[in-house]
Design a protein around this nucleic acid. Structure first.
Lengths: 251, 251
DNA sequence: CGTAAGATTGACAAGCGTCAAATACAGTGG
DNA sequence: CCACTGTATTTGACGCTTGTCAATCTTACG
């Protein structure tokens, strides 16, 4: 629990996420902090579980990046979500007999498991947190709908613009004060597997954005020089949430 | 509440959905039945709320079909989900200041509103139901991931095959014992707006399936003659859920 | 410094979109 | 029962975005 000095904000991350919906009481905050087991470290590219596995539990990402995807019979791959520090991962598998998505790290990462029992107990003891978990799931649905809109009705330029803006926001969530430059933990092939494009075409569009001055690239780093332009191109609207909604259960 | 005889199964539908996750106690079942307000009737094509509206409440679909979509600046449209009798609609909007999707009927429909207060109270009084609501949200995420996979990594034939199989299942949920023929409440343009295709191309593929004997069409009715073939073509896997998981809170 | 993974580039192909017109169909009013 | 009208479906010609294939170049890393 009190992991002293080597990793100060790790256990606190989930609070940040829920605090977007409501100011938490001391008890609620403590209950949340106790949710995860002892964090373990994983190396880049490690698979936590594969689609079809019987493990359908939850994980909490403390440090690093991870992602969920599915592999098709044809060999193609589709990424659903990129996770950064503070994300609760794997919830969609909870109701299922077998995992519905593969969960793997994108970078070296620190991750703890969250047991369904603990979550269940939390729902019983802290109904207000239960509502917040429910709200979190709805926000995730909204992100997936953004993703669907991008894949169904946007061209490659728009998809890539939206993706970069989205990841930049996530990076700033995980590392407050980071600014417009961030390390993108994905290869161009993987970006294509998020956006339903081939690596070749991802490359074409990225270089065109580079040439037109919308962004700069160095190694795996990307700096968005005209983030607002990119956001406008993407057509994505932000979805501000209501904090401390008056219908929430009392503390 | 006791709406006598004119619409017998309406209020019972939500139970069917939750019963997939756990056997409900009498009290839980009653609490669920009291969740919706008095149902109202809507006509085909009516908009319950538009993206951006300040109404972010929930609705329960008792009879008919409805769907959620978003309209893009370009005028294009993307459907996210087709709702049939028994579906709880609009939950993704709950955390947001403004609706993140437009909700409209596809056919004449009977719909009741579910207030956030009632839902909140339910979470407090019936933690087990709270968990079931959470699980429902996760299943919805899984469907959205199926949708993303279809749009990102499947061609038009596969998408349409998967869509038809999916709607056939929904139709059989809403009308048990219906069989392989059902009335599809969407125009070909709307099917395209679900699957990220143009109406022209939807037509090409549908006629080709018709010609090859995979399905038959009459008016708005579709009969899947080789449903299993279509499912195989789509590449979609079913996601069986765990019933009465041992980690659920006690009744 | 060798090797594998990733990024870049070019030529070409194909799936699906666009445009436009014809046909069928559903609903309405006479 | 029929003409009328708007909407949905069907059809064909053509083009563009994106995919495919393959080669080269760069970077990461042991």
């Amino acid at each position: 629990m009190s992991s002293a000095h080597h990793d100060k904000p790790a256990a606190k991350f989930p609070l940040v996420r829920f605090a977007a919906f409501a100011d938490l009481s001391i008890e609620e905050a403590e209950a949340l902090e106790k949710l995860g087991s002892t964090p373990e470290t994983y190396r880049r590219g490690e698979v936590l579980r594969r689609e079809g596995d019987s493990d359908t539990g939850l994980y909490l990402l403390h440090k690093g990046w991870a992602a969920t995807h599915r592999t098709l019979p044809s060999g193609g791959r589709q990424y659903f979500k990129i996770h950064c520090a503070g994300d609760l991962m794997g919830a969609p598998n909870l109701p299922s007999q077998q995992a519905v998505e593969t969960l793997a790290t994108l970078t070296d990462a620190t991750i703890s498991a969250v047991s369904a029992d603990c979550l269940s107990a939390l729902f019983v003891e802290y109904p207000r947190l239960a509502v917040l978990f429910f709200l979190t799931a709805q926000v995730e649905r909204t992100y997936l709908m953004d993703h669907i809109t991008a894949l169904g009705r946007c061209n490659a330029e728009q998809r890539i613009a939206g993706f970069l803006v989205h990841v930049a926001e996530k990076a700033n969530l995980a590392t407050p004060g980071l600014g417009p430059a961030f390390e993108l933990p994905l290869t161009q092939k993987q970006i294509g597997d998020v956006l339903g494009l081939t690596p070749v075409h991802v490359n074409r569009v990225l270089r065109s954005y580079d040439k037109s001055g919308h962004l700069r690239r160095y190694r795996k780093w990307i700096e968005l020089l005209r983030a607002e332009d990119l956001r406008r191109i993407s057509g994505l609207a932000p979805h501000p949430v209501v904090k401390n909604a008056n219908w929430l259960p009392p503390v």
